[in-house]
Simulated assay, not measured.
Amino acid sequence: MTALGFLYPGHSADDDYPRIEQLLGSDVRLDLVHTDIDEDAYRVDALREMGAPERLAKGVEQLRLAGAEAIVWACTSGSFVLGREGAQQQVRALATAAGMPASSTSFAFVHAARELGSVRVAVGATYPQDVAGLFADFLAAGGLEVTGVHSAGIDTAAEVSTWGEAEVTALARAADSPDAQAILLPGTALHTAAYLPALETELAKPVLTANQVTVWEALRLTDRRVNAPSLGILFTREPLVQV
């Protein structure tokens, strides 16, 4: 049994994780610890506070006692708002506190896109435009070319969590561009686990979503690969490059 640990802010789309665990259909356990959110706001200052080291450290011991072999900060905006260097410091502090390999959803997007050989990516973000732009900057710093950013302009995770398949599909469609090799939908508050094959059929290219890549990243940290077609191309392809 491989136990993977996740620090998840709030409860917006945490039910994606038991769904993903079931779809993996393997000896993998996903353990979530919920971190506190003082203010549910897609605003840079609030997002920086959400990912503060002391806030994340509170959940580490619980995951260690559960037997986690790797830990991922399951939040995109709470890491990329720090910039690449700040996000790296955040992950290093988490790994030190946990005593195990660590990463975050922001880095998971970069690693997953690179594994699929998708250098040119389009972004469909639920965030306001300024926050969405910071995600694009983070991807560019990781060596990806962002062909375009579509912002839905939503201010809170609570609102994002109410979206269903129609809204998620519309977001992906609005973000797509002919030169994009993959579409990235950040935000772990967005339910996507049930929609991945339909999204990729609709867009005819890989669609990477936050909770999906977060789990994939935790598996990567433990050198596990699981073939799970219901979780999209990312979970069916052999790696094209070393990440």
Rank of each mutant, 00 (worst) to 15 (best):
Q89L: 11
L82A: 14
R92F: 02
G83F: 14
L144A: 10
H34P: 00
L134C: 10
I37T: 14
A74E: 06
L171Y: 06
R237I: 14
A193H: 01
A182V: 10
V168N: 03
T169W: 00
F6P: 11
T169M: 12
Y195I: 00
L203V: 10
P206W: 07
Q242C: 14
I71L: 13
N227C: 03
L199R: 06
T2E: 13
A3I: 15
E159H: 06
P186G: 09
D130F: 07
V160T: 11
Y42G: 10
T192C: 00
A204G: 00
Q89Y: 05
S106V: 08
P9D: 10
N227F: 07
G83D: 13
A175Q: 11
L190A: 07
V131C: 00
G10Q: 11
L32G: 07
E49F: 00
P229V: 05
L134T: 12
G86R: 15
G164D: 08
W73H: 11
L24H: 09
F135Y: 13
V160D: 06
S12D: 15
T2L: 14
T201N: 02
A122T: 07
A204Q: 12
H150F: 06
A87L: 08
R92N: 13
K205A: 01
P178Y: 05
T162K: 06
L184C: 04
I154V: 15
Y42H: 11
V123N: 01
